[in-house]
Write a protein that binds this DNA or RNA. Structure first.
Length: 468
DNA sequence: CGGGCACTAAACAGAC
DNA sequence: CGTCTGTTTAGTGCCC
């Protein structure tokens, strides 16, 4: 940061940051999303925004809106996944990077050895700091992995693979981390196992997905991670006086972890969807059309993976209806981290849940549509490559055979002109709005979790009582 | 100091 | 039968 030009334009700084972040997740959906952001900046059609097709669609940049007093364009980038924000800002000059002997690979060394945990004052680059344990909790790692999958569900081994791919640290880490992943999947109520009898069995084990009820919590937890660019960009944009850098000397103090916004505040730029819902006092049709349109774009990505086609074929054989993700989520705005994503020891009795509460049954998490509806989505855009990364617009990638069914219509978004895009989006929006209306009327906003259902405390108290 | 939480390790059972 | 997956318990360290 010492080499940063404080007067650098927002656009320039943003471009530089995006370049840096893209380099940290090469080839990934995130990277493509970032690239799409650049396209957006160049004035291309927003609906081509690959970010909307990625796992971080809800964190996409809203660049058209005027900035709040607190949010500027810099912080609106805070949806970006963790990366070395300062990679292109001459890390060596800021005292961040490392001490002697570690500059060859950029990893952090302290007193000649690698610290087990990543130093809190150093922006974390998973591809670079391969000897530093990622500053993310396993919950966040799993969340990112699942969200980075086109179907928003992954088997354990693919979660392993994603983590290994994105965080090389684990390639040399003791295998205990896999145990921790499984432990987290089992105990963390944010993660749900897709029932096998739904035709989604992928051999050994099950698919895991994010419980939509807790997805906002995970997003919030992710936002709260120390190295989330939300904080880093905050520092870039408005470093506190105590952390100004002088003469290339970094200050060995952690960046403040507390978000600028209040704990109960959802940044409209970080969480346009959530914040809109949260602050919605009256039914805003226009905004909801936008929401639904965005949802459609997200839905589009649902059908683009090998697993999807396989599961769809399997389900067709079994006569099981197909699914589509439902994106209408309750707003969960938490104060304590435990409410973001916590372990669950107790089983929530479905009957105890209010009728308006999202069910934990997989049946209810997905809309079951007809084959024709699926076909409308199944031949679009991106596919999951054999390496688990998206391959956009390629029919056959690395041995992946695309669905051999003849597309009934061309790509929904990417290859349509603007007018047709808008028409289709509006059509889909109308259809989904009907569904959304149901949820609006029946689903209360949640300002906090029901303590009875937030069973982490129960679990831990149970644990503690057992210990004592 | 105690509670809550994340993490790790381990044991165990079931599925493949 | 070995491996993988999922569950559960126990213990530890950190933070508030």
């Amino acid at each position: 940061m010492p080499s940063m030009d404080i007067n650098e334009s927002d656009a320039s700084m943003r471009q530089r940051l995006v370049n840096s972040l893209s380099a940290s997740f090469p080839g990934s959906a995130l990277s493509k999303a970032l690239q799409g952001m650049k396209d957006l900046d160049d004035g291309s059609d927003e609906m081509n925004d690959p970010l909307s097709k990625s796992c971080f669609a809800e964190l996409r940049l809203i660049k058209e809106e005027p900035m709040d007093e607190e949010d500027d364009e810099l912080t609106s980038l805070a949806w970006l996944q963790d990366s070395d924000l300062l990679k292109n800002i001459h890390a060596g000059e800021d005292g961040f990077d490392s001490d002697e002997g570690s500059k060859e690979n950029g990893d952090i060394k302290m007193n000649g050895c690698y610290p087990q945990t990543h130093p809190p004052h150093v922006p974390y680059n998973p591809q670079k700091h391969i000897h530093s344990k990622p500053p993310y909790s396993f919950s966040c790692l799993i969340f990112m992995a699942v969200e980075d999958s086109p179907q928003k569900m992954l088997p354990v081994k693919d979660i392993y693979a994603w983590i290994l791919n994105q965080f090389p640290y684990f390639q040399n880490a003791p295998t205990g981390w896999k145990n921790s992943v499984r432990h987290n999947l089992s105990l963390n109520k944010c993660f749900k196992k897709v029932e096998k009898d739904r035709g989604l069995s992928i051999g050994k084990g099950s698919l895991w997905c994010i419980d939509p009820e807790y997805r906002p919590n995970l997003l919030q937890a992710l936002r709260k991670t120390p190295y989330h660019p939300y904080h880093q960009l905050q520092m870039l944009a408005n470093p506190p006086p105590s952390q100004q850098y002088q003469n290339g000397q970094g200050i060995n103090r952690p960046l403040p972890l507390a978000p600028r916004l209040g704990p109960n505040t959802v940044s409209p730029h970080l969480f346009p969807f959530l914040s809109k819902r949260l602050n919605q006092t009256s039914y805003d049709i226009d905004s909801d059309i936008q929401d639904v349109a965005q949802t459609l774009v997200s839905l589009k990505s649902l059908s683009n993976s090998k697993h999807f086609h396989e599961s769809q074929d399997l389900k067709r054989k079994r006569g099981i209806p197909s699914y589509q993700t439902r994106h209408f989520e309750p707003i969960v705005c938490t104060v304590v981290p435990s409410e973001d994503h916590t372990y669950s020891m107790t089983t929530v009795d479905e009957d105890d849940l209010a009728p308006s509460s999202p069910s934990s049954s997989i049946d209810d998490e997905y809309d079951f549509g007809s084959d024709e509806e699926i076909d409308d989505f199944s031949d679009n855009g991106d596919r999951l490559g054999s390496d688990g990364e998206y391959e956009s617009g390629v029919d056959e990638v690395d041995g992946y055979v695309p669905n051999n069914r003849t597309p009934k219509r061309p790509r929904l978004i990417c290859e349509e002109d603007d007018e047709e895009e808008k028409k289709k989006i509006e059509e889909g929006a109308d259809a989904l709005l009907n569904l959304a209306g149901i949820f609006k009327t029946s689903q209360p906003l949640l300002s906090s979790r029901n303590p009875e259902h937030n069973s982490c405390s129960q679990k831990n108290s149970a644990k503690n009582s057992k210990r004592s």
